[in-house]
Design a protein around this nucleic acid. Structure first.
Lengths: 240, 240
DNA sequence: CGGCGGCTTGAAAGGCATCAACATAAGTGG
DNA sequence: CCACTTATGTTGATGCCTTTCAAGCCGCCG
């Protein structure tokens, strides 16, 4: 059996906050936020982040075609963005982990092209886009940084189409651990998303995801027990 | 037999220009350039675009790991960006058509993560990034616009992993025609990339690409003769 | 005109999806 | 807190789609 020490993703909301009060605990999670460079400079009680939403599992943050107003930063928990294809099947575009931003997809068209729902109980910070721009424009060094940050998230996604099921899942697991742990030290975490979500995300059937997990478990590449997972042979996963 | 009227992609470089002189002919192709909103405002002989490179087919514009200096706009022709995977196989990330920009992938890391080569004889405009920022920051409305432009190109790529070969190729063809013809009127064009490139891009074997083209031809969804292609039943292609 | 790279077509093998049944976990109400 | 219900995950058998290997064709360029 494996023992999982950190459950960073599975952030349970213990209290719902409607205004920003940066407690010591917040400080930790805020450190990894991609907007921290602005947010931490903004004076306390500043209107940069207007509130912190608490979302229950499966609760929706915004829907496809909603008018674009805000960027959201994941404070704790995890979300997914998706749209429904012509046959009504969910197509997952991205998962969002603590510290990551969602909503930039809507900047160009001025409406959210995708829907966003919480995969576990989640807390997000809402940053009205106009206000964000206002802040960004107020400091020259931030100009460059925001462009850089947005450029970071370019189209590196479609290459998975040429990978086998095992390669896709290995890449997915490595990617998850990389995004969860900045230091890259720990390799034990909680899969917040269902097998089906992973399948939709990687273009695989749910059963295939399950089977590959079992195969990886048998070859001792990973240890897995339902949602708890530990990457044991990271090298071998990357070497697929 | 089909007759192809427009060969916008297959821009043959008749003259190599080393400084910017916006002839009437340039004006046409520049109109569709995503940086035209800045470039057209910059006074003639301004240092915004420093020169126009002529690249022969298969010639390289920059290589993976090169230091990042400039964004490039395709003036005529077409390019592809790719990297080599561990087994030395080419993985194509994106194709770039006239008016489109490449190089933004390098902003974050400050080096080009991918290599770029011309698929046909191609002419590009080089825009040094520092100079671009200088211009962009000089006008607030441009700043907003560049952020919007970059945000436009978000991760909508990986969904192809869940499509069949026919769906991927149909989507690819529709996408190409959309990017080539702003009005969406014409459906006849020249495929500048090889079957192999298309395969690498879509995660399919070259033979599969070929087979699907033949199948589409037999069902009269398209007319195709080597590189010349006409989308006859656009609706049916989209409906796959 | 000959050679070569790109393209097409065929046959066989393999990987993944699908369908189906079951197991386990999570959620709900008494 | 337990019993029930529902959602989620696992495992097996079968079939199909795509890859792979192989051979031949076509178009392009020297």
């Amino acid at each position: 059996m494996i023992r999982v020490h950190k459950f960073i993703v599975q952030g349970v909301i213990t209290k719902k906050m409607n205004k920003v009060s940066r407690s010591t605990q917040d400080q930790q999670t805020c450190d990894r936020c991609k907007l921290n460079f602005i947010c931490s400079e903004a004076s306390r009680g500043s209107p940069f982040v207007i509130r912190q939403h608490g979302l229950k599992r499966k609760e929706r943050l915004f829907s496809s075609n909603d008018a674009f107003t805000s960027i959201y930063a994941i404070h704790s928990g995890a979300m997914k963005t998706f749209h429904l294809d012509f046959s009504g099947q969910e197509r997952i575009h991205q998962f969002y982990l603590p510290g990551e931003l969602l909503g930039f997809e809507a900047v160009y068209s001025n409406y959210y092209p995708l829907s966003a729902v919480a995969m576990v109980n989640t807390s997000v910070c809402q940053v009205p886009y106009e206000r964000l721009l206002q802040f960004v424009f107020s400091r020259p060094e931030w100009h460059r940084r925001i462009i850089s940050m947005i450029s970071q998230r370019f189209n590196f996604g479609q290459y998975i189409a040429s990978l086998t099921a095992e390669q896709r899942i290995a890449a997915f697991l490595v990617e998850m651990s990389r995004r969860l742990f900045v230091d890259g030290e720990s390799v034990e975490f909680e899969l917040v998303m269902s097998r089906q979500d992973i399948g939709y995300y990687l273009g695989l059937a749910t059963e295939t995801v399950s089977r590959v997990f079992t195969r990886f478990k048998q070859t001792n590449f990973i240890a897995i027990n339902n949602k708890k997972i530990a990457l044991i042979e990271m090298d071998k996963l990357q070497g697929l």
